[in-house]
Each structure stands twice: as structure tokens, then as C-alpha cells.
Simulated scan of single mutants.
Amino acid sequence: MKLIIAIVQDQDLYLLREDLAKNNFRMTKLSSSGGFLKIGNSTLLIGVEDERVEECLKIIEEDCKARTADSSLLNITMPTDSYMPYPVEVTIGGATVFILDVEEYYRF
């Protein structure tokens, strides 16, 4: 058995949870937030039998697409110590996935 930890953007969460549930994957959702843009995201803990790992990964990959967005970061300092917003194109979305071996599993 494996534990899949999937960190996904909140925009992708609804569709992903629906598709995982349709395919009988059980999951637990934890709220989290990103460090760079401070955008809300969620961490899903998904217990998966070894033979279904690829199926689960395929669903995550299909539902969590990376995309670009413009962000106004305050990173140019003017000589008068005021800030000028500087638009930057950043990549958001997608998923970060970790797969861990599960030594024991209990369900009460």
C-alpha cells in the first residue's frame, strides 16, 4: 500500500475530488497555503493499493494542469523608499505529489 500526498491549487480541487471519488479513491483533505504567492491550496492524503497508484496519478495529472497568471509583485524599490508594482508572469496550478510506502494500515 502507498500513501499519495498531493498538493493542489484550490481551483483544481473540486474536479479532482469528484474524479477520485468516482473511481473509489478515499482521501482526506487538509487546507494549506503556498509560500510564494500565498495562494490557497489543499493537501490530499490518499491511501492507494500498489496496483492502483498509476490510475490515481493519471487522474491527478489530468485534473491539475499548470497555467500562467500575472502577478503584481512589489519588488522594485524606488530611491524615495516607495514601491512600484512590477507585473510578473508566474506558473500556477499543477500538482506536487509525494508517494510513500505504508508499513501498516488500520481502519476502525
Rank of each mutant, 00 (worst) to 15 (best):
L44A: 10
E49C: 08
E104W: 00
V90N: 14
G94Y: 04
Y105M: 05
Y106W: 01
K22I: 07
V102L: 13
F108Y: 06
A6H: 09
E61R: 14
L74A: 08
T91Y: 08
C64D: 08
M1F: 00
C64M: 12
E18W: 01
S33Y: 05
L37P: 02
A69Y: 11
Y86A: 04
R67Q: 09
F108S: 03
E89K: 15
V88R: 12
I4N: 06
A69L: 08
K58A: 04
F36W: 11
M1L: 03
L30Y: 14
I92L: 13
V97S: 06
Y106I: 04
Q11L: 10
T77L: 10
R52L: 14
L57P: 05
E61V: 06
D50L: 01
R17W: 04
L3W: 07
R67E: 11
D12I: 00
I76W: 01
F98E: 02
Y86G: 08
L30W: 12
D19V: 14
T77Y: 15
E18F: 12
G35V: 14
I60S: 07
T96V: 08
K29R: 15
T91F: 03
I7M: 14
L20Y: 15
F36D: 03
S42I: 06
T77N: 13
V48P: 10
P85L: 05
K58Q: 13
E62G: 00
S42Y: 06
L20D: 13
L37I: 05
I39D: 02
A6K: 02
K38M: 03
I39E: 03
